[in-house]
Amino acid sequence: MLELNQLSIRFSGDARHLFSPLSFEVAPGEVAAVMGPSGCGKSTLLAAIAGTLSRCFTPSGEIVLNQRQLLELPQARRRVGILFQDDLLFPHFNVEQNLRFALGDVSRDEAERRIAQVLEQAELSGYQQRDIGHLSGGQRARVSVLRSLLAEPELLLLDEPFSKLDKALRAQFREFVFAQIKAMNIPALLVTHDHDDVPHGAQVHALQ
């Protein structure tokens, strides 16, 4: 469960806030959306939750994830996964190495088994040794999602992850991501400026 209580962000040394305070909850398996035009602070909000906020900003309020106060924790201890517009697969690793990087301290056999398993779910069986540069855009996007989820995050942040894909791929990939979130049963927060990306019946918050 993710809870935001009066969460707000301002420039350090400046009283003005980027947006009016946000309060809402996201249940496990649920995708909530935050919408607003470019430059309204959507990505900054995600950075505050992920723990990558630049020092130019000061957050206030509370972010609680499964009873843990996130603002007090460094990024490494928050267990928050992020999906960006770009897949950010590490170019010097192949598919398997990228996925292995996200797995915790597991044995080699176990790692191989789980990687094969998730690749199969994503219809990428046998792609372990593929070079990242030789994948299509859609394949890269899927590997990127698999990688985020293998780290077993307690929350997934989606920073316009669909915006760089073309229309045909987009709907298909969206369904894939939402199904994965459902299966993992974790809360997810999506920022976007496109209404099509928001799942039906999801709660939508506008940043002002």
């Binding site: 992920a50 990024q75 490494a76 201890r77 950010l88 010097h92 990087f101 293998l150 995050p153």
Partner: peptide, 25 residues
Amino acid sequence: QRYMQAAVSLNHRPLLSFVQIKLAM
């Protein structure tokens, strides 16, 4: 720098990520 953000969100180890991802790249 988002490579580093992605890496730390995945393996939760900033120093290791720094070596394996940033310095390697």
